[in-house]
């Protein structure tokens, strides 16, 4: 009798421990971004008090020694590189995903899967080296002269190219998964009405998966914005607002990676870099909110 009661109690205690444990872990995950944000905010408090938010964001004067920190050139560089990367990668991913899922044989798709995985697994520093070896000279001594422009090749454009290549496996994978969820019946319904294959793809496949496509590119955007090493290696790292895509730029992640741990004797430099990190995080969160909003908006419309 006594043993059954103890057994019962023991089970209850065990149950409580496990559920407490599970909740703690979830709480930890939820807490993580908050903790990061708070620590970044507290570190960048100093510079915010010194210069004010609007000057930090929109001034293009970057003279740390004189205590002037304008982040505008970095923000613009980041935005340029990211959008170039996305623009280059979008048609490649979309069209190859359509081909692989709608036109190509099952065997081809099966063969592509490991290729995509390999591309995804290549460390970003290798993409950077490849960019220096191939993309930078291609831009500097082939593309630019063709248009009559002079550049070293280390440029926003090179950064965009390298970024585009890095985004391919990531976005392509998601798109293939999304396209495969569309039921065959739906295609047959459209074809049986006399629609052509392309008409069906345009209206049924892309219509059905539009929210998914938005979210794939939204995720790609966040990833691209934060990509550091490969971009840093080919983008030139010159603090100036790029006038054309052949000019060098200096994206936010590159600023942090290049300078953190150095020149920290300069007053407030440390705080300025923390502010850059905070900014990066805020922008990525904004992207996420936007793509989530877009998904909900378009799902409602269907």
């Amino acid at each position: 009798m006594a043993t059954t009661i103890t057994y019962y109690k023991l089970r209850k205690i065990k149950d409580r421990i496990v559920s407490g444990w599970v909740k703690t872990m979830v709480g930890l995950v939820l807490l993580l971004p908050v903790v990061i944000a708070i620590s970044l905010l507290s570190k960048s408090w100093l510079i915010l008090g010194h210069s004010g938010l609007s000057e930090l964001l929109f001034s293009s004067v970057w003279r740390p020694l004189a205590g002037e920190f304008g982040f505008w050139p970095f923000i613009i560089s980041s935005v340029w590189v990211t959008f170039l990367g996305l623009i280059f990668t979008a048609p490649i991913c979309l069209l190859s995903a359509i081909y692989l899922t709608q036109y190509g044989s099952k065997r081809l798709l099966g063969m592509m899967q490991p290729v995509i995985d390999i591309l995804a697994g290549i460390p970003s520093v290798i993409y950077g080296v490849w960019g220096i070896l191939l993309i930078v000279p291609a831009v500097g001594s082939f593309l630019a002269p063709l248009l009559g422009i002079e550049t070293s090749g280390f440029s926003i454009l090179a950064g965009g190219f390298v970024l585009a290549v890095m985004l391919i496996p990531f976005i392509l994978n998601i798109l293939i998964e999304i396209f495969r969820t569309v039921p065959r019946d739906l295609f047959e319904a459209s074809l049986s009405l006399g629609a052509s294959k392309w008409h069906t793809i345009k209206h049924v496949l892309l219509g059905k998966t539009f929210p998914g496509i938005i979210s794939a590119f939204g995720l790609g955007l966040s990833r691209a914005f934060g990509e550091t090493i490969a971009v840093l290696m080919v983008v030139g790292n010159v603090v100036a607002i790029p006038k054309t895509i052949f000019d060098p730029g200096y994206p936010l992640p590159a600023l942090i990676a290049n300078n953190y741990g150095e020149m920290l004797s300069i007053p407030m430099f440390d705080s300025a870099l923390m502010f850059a990190a905070l900014l990066l995080m805020a922008i990525v969160i904004l992207f996420n909110i936007f793509s989530r909003w877009a998904i909900i908006h378009f799902e409602k419309k269907q």
């Binding site: 039921p183 019946d185 739906l186 047959e188 319904a189 459209s190 049924v204 219509g207 059905k208 539009f210």
Partner: peptide, 8 residues
């Protein structure tokens, strides 16, 4: 068809 197939 067997299951209705409303287009999106």
């Amino acid at each position: 068809s067997q299951r209705p197939t409303p287009l999106p």
